[in-house]
Design a protein around this nucleic acid. Structure first.
Length: 279
DNA sequence: GGCTTTGTTTTATA
DNA sequence: GTATAAAACAAAGC
């Protein structure tokens, strides 16, 4: 069976860190768009007209979005969705068939947007128009930000009563967590993914908070999770998959208690959990 | 060729 | 207006 590793916060952070020294301060000399639907805003010809000739001032991350800051207060917002990659290669190297957009740089290298399923999207916006980039403007707080204390996190649970896993994956609630890290956070917190948010004790919310930060940080240190598709800016795989304790472990023994790991659908998503450890 | 994969958006409902 | 849940959608691989 093949597994697609979807870029979540640690994977996107790894991509951004890898790309920064390769593309910062470079100029975009041309853009080749072979799949126009990837360019979500503005229209492809307009996008090209506005971005060519621009200098890349920096590359950063917000949630699962990559932000490439350009001159004149413009920025490119990139979402990899499933199976997305951003790679830098020499221009003469072979481009595979899933490379849909190529940014030609002034040092002869190429920044390539590669997306097997074509779900990823690229936006070009003015900095003061974030609402034009999909859900980018509505993102919740960054889970690793020092501005979000445990008290702030507890406060966010006011008026929340939905299932906890769906809440953690809700980008408006908190930014950057997807299916893999949500399962890992809840397993290590001993909480069933279907628990309603308004049944959680303060102590349980505290566990989620600390496990969330610890696991996401660890994911970044390990360079993200790779099953088959996700790679960093150099085409290298991460190693956090070796640290996973519950995700994709159906039928295996729980590493904590030894009982069998189960899988169920929570909010329409495949969710791995230990029935004996997670209540 | 139907099913699965996930993140986001849309729609419906309370 | 707000929160939630369910459904739709994107496309490719097996």
């Amino acid at each position: 069976m093949r597994w697609n590793a979807v870029p979540e916060l640690p994977e996107v952070e790894t991509v951004v860190k890898g790309l920064r020294p390769l593309i910062k301060d470079r100029y975009i000399t041309d853009i080749t768009i072979s799949e126009e639907k990837i360019i979500a805003h503005p229209a492809a010809d307009e996008f090209k007209k506005e971005a060519v000739g621009m200098k890349i001032e920096d590359i950063t991350r917000r949630g699962k979005y990559i932000i490439i800051e350009l001159e004149n207060d413009k920025e490119m917002i990139i979402h990899l969705r499933m199976t997305g990659k951003l790679l830098v290669k020499q221009c003469e190297k072979f481009r595979d068939k899933h490379t849909h957009v190529v940014f030609h740089l002034d040092n002869g290298q190429e920044l390539r947007f590669n997306n097997i399923r074509k779900f990823g999207r690229i936006y070009l916006i003015d900095k003061d128009q974030p609402q034009k980039a999909g859900g980018y403007a509505e993102l919740g707080p960054e889970p690793l930000s020092n501005d979000m204390s445990l008290d702030d996190f507890k406060e966010m649970f006011k008026n929340r009563r939905g299932v906890i896993k769906s809440l953690l994956m809700n980008q408006k609630f908190i930014a950057g967590i997807g299916n893999i890290y949500a399962d890992e956070i809840l397993f290590r917190s001993g909480i069933d993914p279907e628990r309603k948010a308004d049944t959680l004790s303060e102590m349980e919310i505290g566990k989620i908070y600390s496990n969330m930060r610890e696991i996401l940080k660890k994911g970044i240190i390990y360079g993200g999770t790779t099953f088959s598709d996700y790679v960093n800016a150099f085409g290298e795989k991460g190693s956090f998959q070796e640290e996973l304790q519950i995700y994709q472990k159906e039928g295996e023994k729980c590493c904590r208690c030894g009982s069998t790991v189960k899988k169920k659908r929570v909010g329409g998503r495949g969710s791995y959990y230990c029935p004996s450890c997670q209540k």
